[in-house]
Amino acid sequence: MPEPLIKARNVSLEADGKPILKDISLDIFRNEIFGIMGPAGGGKTSFLRLVNHTFRGSNVKIEGRLHVLGEDVLSDEVNPTPLRRKVSMVFATPVVLPMSIFENLVYGLRIQGIRDKSRLREAAERGLKAAILWDEVRDRLDKPAQKLSGGQQQRLCIARAMALSPDVLLLDEPTSGLDPISTFRIEEALKELKKRHTIVLVSNNTKQIARVSDRCAFFLMGELIETGKTSQMFTVPREKKTDDYIAGRFG
């Protein structure tokens, strides 16, 4: 078994006296799409935010160990900036910045102080190709990004994250607001991306998890109910709750 890229051991999270995650242990390996599914309020997004160190809240209490790319991200000494360049994140609603498509793509590089035109151009192209958006926007990179359609905007957000060549891409319900065709395009892009990257996909769309993930986890009320190969989870789940959720009996 190779060393996992993300290794959670007994991670518990509490904010304002409310438990958000309870004793989560799971492994995410290189070049896989790891799906996290479960009803809203189950702690899926909070888990993602722990991974790239963007969790915010008052009276936060964290226990356990969470190693991301070999670094313990729960320790106080972690420097979040380099971590976030290696572990990028895309939100549920596409957030394009009010600037050109190109400037959106290279934002992450510009804040690192990179000015070299050819490097920026290269990164922008790499990002767009990774998100399968290159052919649609290659001739209008200088146009305002907010003119793009919703589906294109979300792929632009993925492209913007990929322009940084991260090791891990965290996706928080990336298709929740999109039409089926845009969703299909993004799922196709993800399958392409996992060849060189690791993807953590949070979704409450079980069908999407079944379609694209290699392994997955089921979060319910802050607890990890079950984790395993997607093919196994969706055919012979070990837990009754997983079976009920997948079958649509609740959630």
């Binding site: 900036t81 380099p82 957030v95 992450g108 940084l164």
Partner: peptide, 27 residues
Amino acid sequence: VPQSYRDVNEVLGGSKWQGVIRLVLPN
């Protein structure tokens, strides 16, 4: 200025000050 701009700056590895200079103040 939408909070989401600051979130994007954060997840792309920007510091708070970079977000202020590049996104918040221009907008």
